[in-house]
Design a protein around this nucleic acid. Structure first.
Lengths: 256, 256
DNA sequence: ATTGAAAATTTGTCCGGACATATTTATACA
DNA sequence: TGTATAAATATGTCCGGACAAATTTTCAAT
């Protein structure tokens, strides 16, 4: 195995040893030598085959695990779980504000607060969460300085978190933050749907736009780590002012 | 420091030693003991302070680096780059098909191919890329079985990749794949904008919908790893059939 | 004061070993 | 045959040491 050490032109030594071993193993996985589902040779076996220490083998295996090729289990071994790097594209955001895409200095002017079932048009788009009772807020989200309305919002708060209602008076940030701070439950997942539809009479009136304008409705469901719906917000934007941008970045693990 | 080893009830030993050290250092970073920009104590110093081997210190530092707290540089040290875990929310997709959100078995029926400047309404939404010449395709994206049109698409191909034009006849997958396969350049980044607007006469006619329906226009720019625009696609969807869903997952690094 | 080479510092790579812990396999017992 | 126990196996944690490579600091020469 260990050959061609003489000053040849083909230098098979790019980078540290663990990277070479990792690349070799990756090629074997991609080529099917180690099929998906099978176990890799044990660390000791790999030590022998490559003539390296266990520490170096473990560094190589760690890389394969990080790249999504293998899963390691103490006492069992390293199982091949994928023949291709986990790659893909990600749209990452540092905070949920980047999801909303309106400036942080906007604020929600709450017009109504009540408890019960949501209006029929709202309930219709809830899917799994339809038919429940909520603490419901409705109001206009406004630009900080000017009076430019951004959207007409209906916010459905899970009744478990009804205790935040008194805090709406001093509402500065987003509502989900109120729940996070007061109840200590973190938002673990957000589902966002974007639809277009003829604007409702109510939204058109509140936003001060013609009913010939269409609305873009953005529905966001906030779930905690147990899958419980903490909050649903339904936001009707005037179509002519709506725009949503996202950037996807490739996330790859090449060989080396 | 190392005290309370007697069989006390308060067990300060949850998990391996490197995790404990990593947590301790993380707390110091979050509390400002090690301010952002400063260098952490050297590995040898930490070995002494905690009475552990360098291997264990390095495992702890590795975790801090993965969580985005520190950046390590050979010969220099470990610099604090953030006082909070890199966290955030990510919208991950395994392939770009999940971005498009129409089934893979749809296909684009190309009606026109020409070279030059795009029509004015298209050029207007291009931003930085306005005013260029492209290889331009226009056509209807259709459902696989039925004749249900999904959107009216205008695809602008960078003239550098004009060589793919003959392959449009056998077009099965997405156009960006054609470029990737033939030219070996990978899509590194995609920018997607979603807007709503009154539908154009052309799109309404092609899609067979009323002009009172609004269009949702989805613009996607495909860039390679040098920031070069490979492809821009402008897709006009009938608003009443458009829906876009995304799921964000929290990506956190708690202590321990 | 500026430059350039040498020395010290610090992290990266790699080796060896030991024991702990989780899993699997083999064995003895009912 | 089925089950509980013991042994073997494999990865996880942790220790010690050595040298390499990158960076920073020191110091001498101009």
């Amino acid at each position: 195995m260990a050959s061609a050490k003489s000053g040849a032109t083909s230098g098979p030594k790019p980078g540290p040893r663990y990277a070479q071993v990792s690349d070799t193993l990756q090629r074997r996985i991609e080529s099917g030598t180690y099929p998906v589902g099978a176990l890799l040779p044990t660390e000791l076996d790999l030590c022998q085959e490559f003539g390296i220490s266990r520490h170096t083998v473990r560094e190589a295996l760690r890389r394969l695990a990080e790249a999504g090729f293998v899963q390691r289990r103490q006492g069992s071994g390293s199982q091949v779980i994928s023949a291709s790097p986990k790659g893909g594209y990600v749209h990452a955001m540092r905070s949920l504000n980047e999801l909303f895409q309106y400036a942080a200095d906007t604020h929600l002017r709450v017009d109504r607060i009540f408890e019960g079932a949501p209006p029929a048009p709202i309930d219709a788009v809830l899917g799994d969460q339809a038919g429940q009772n909520w603490v419901i807020l409705q109001g206009l989200r406004l630009d900080a300085a000017g009076r430019q309305p951004i959207c007409w919002s209906t916010v459905l708060v899970n009744q478990v978190f009804a205790g935040i209602v008194p805090d709406f008076a001093t509402l500065t940030g987003a509502i989900y933050r109120l729940i996070e701070d007061r109840y200590g439950v973190l938002v673990d997942r957000v589902e966002q749907d974007i639809r277009a539809m003829p604007i409702s009479a109510e939204a058109a009136a509140e936003l001060g736009v013609s009913r010939r304008i269409w609305a873009v409705q953005v529905v966001r469901r906030y779930l905690d780590n147990e899958g419980r719906v903490m909050l649903v917000s339904v936001n009707d934007h005037p179509g002519d002012r709506f725009s949503y941008s996202m950037q996807l970045q490739k996330e790859g693990w090449g060989r080396s």
